[in-house]
Design a binder for these strands. Structure first.
Lengths: 194, 194
DNA sequence: AGGACTCTTGAATGAACATTCAAGTATCTG
DNA sequence: CAGATACTTGAATGTTCATTCAAGAGTCCT
């Protein structure tokens, strides 16, 4: 036996950045080999195909985001405060000038539509999982008497989720911090009791 | 002299559909020649390049949407009613199973990010124009005493715009008519007086 | 009718692409 | 140390792509 020479999560991190920067189609194997430091053969040995690498990179991204989400919504803080932070984070990402300004999941989903059902479903599932977690947090907030309007928590979670997706696309037309921050405020106000 | 044999707007219509169905990168010249019925040489003669064709197709799409917008917001109807119709139209588009389910502008903007500044800026400008028109309509509604909250009309227009972008991406994860319709309601409620 | 002009045609071009694989190299086992 | 068993390497492969262009065909004007 001989163990692989590369660190799988380091490779995925770099591949993730490449896909975020160039999109799926335009992230050529050449760019991916340069970014990861792996040779084509190694990538095909480890991930099967470009698509296989993308699927793992997208899952890697998803796991990272999920972890941030979990740590943000800790038990001993008002949910509304965590939600506010989450939106502030999103705004910060959107106004960056690095590849971090895009959400790999939503961007790729827009790109891949009608091209690859397997990838589309994976991305959709990942996004829906975060939406569901958000729904649980909102339900918790309602139970704990936070000033959230009396509506189905899932409907509210979907609304916030839609808002985040919208902000991400909007940022491509106008990456203005104060405008995005105002949108975040409007979103929050829309689910709060008057 | 000899006039071209093809109808330019028919060609643009077909090219538009091809770009909507496959995205920019995956709409190959082969697909475009099949869809438009034109030979490569003719496309290059008439539009200069694939990019040139896309730019005209995107502008064509933009003009169509703008026209729908103008006819929807006729002077003798409450703005809120028109806005409700606009959102209902969007929902209807999103749940279709044809290429009409995508917005060429937002989808391409997501795809093109970081790849072609000229295209990105064109798409952004087109989208911002609709946003501005919406702002004017909202200002009119406020002047005419419709039940819209007392905030900058442009901020409200941006919020609705963001919502529409969000619905379009959301629809890729879950193209459920009732869910999208509920989002539209939530958006409307967020800008209305209680 | 003839010549000039322009549009159309579609095979040819070369670049970029994802993928493969046989040779090379390192590690582990006995 | 020797043999076996991986993993690594990167040039080669065949495909697909956007683009070009010279030949062909249609239209118009005189």
């Amino acid at each position: 036996m001989r163990s692989a020479e590369f660190d799988r999560s380091q490779v995925l991190e770099q591949a993730m950045h490449t896909f975020m920067e160039h999109g799926y189609a335009k992230a050529s194997m050449q760019k991916l080999t340069q970014a990861t430091g792996l040779h084509p053969g190694s990538i095909y040995c480890a991930f099967g195909s470009k698509k296989g690498l993308f699927i793992e990179a997208a899952s890697f991204y998803h796991q990272q985001k999920l972890q941030v989400f979990e740590s943000l919504f800790s038990e001993d803080k008002p949910v509304l405060a965590s939600l506010k932070e989450l939106l502030a984070n999103t705004v910060q990402e959107c106004v960056q000038n690095t590849c971090a300004k895009v959400c790999l999941l939503t961007r790729s989903l827009n790109e891949i539509e009608g091209q690859d059902r397997e990838i589309a479903e994976l991305l959709a599932r990942n996004l829906q999982q975060i939406e569901l977690s958000l729904g649980e947090q909102i339900a918790r907030a309602q139970r704990q008497g936070e000033a959230i309007i009396d509506e189905e928590p899932l409907a509210l979670a979907r609304f916030i989720t839609m808002g985040v997706y919208g902000m991400r696309t909007y940022a491509f037309t106008n990456a203005d911090q104060s405008i995005l921050a105002q949108m975040a405020e409007q979103l929050l106000r829309a689910i709060q009791k008057p």
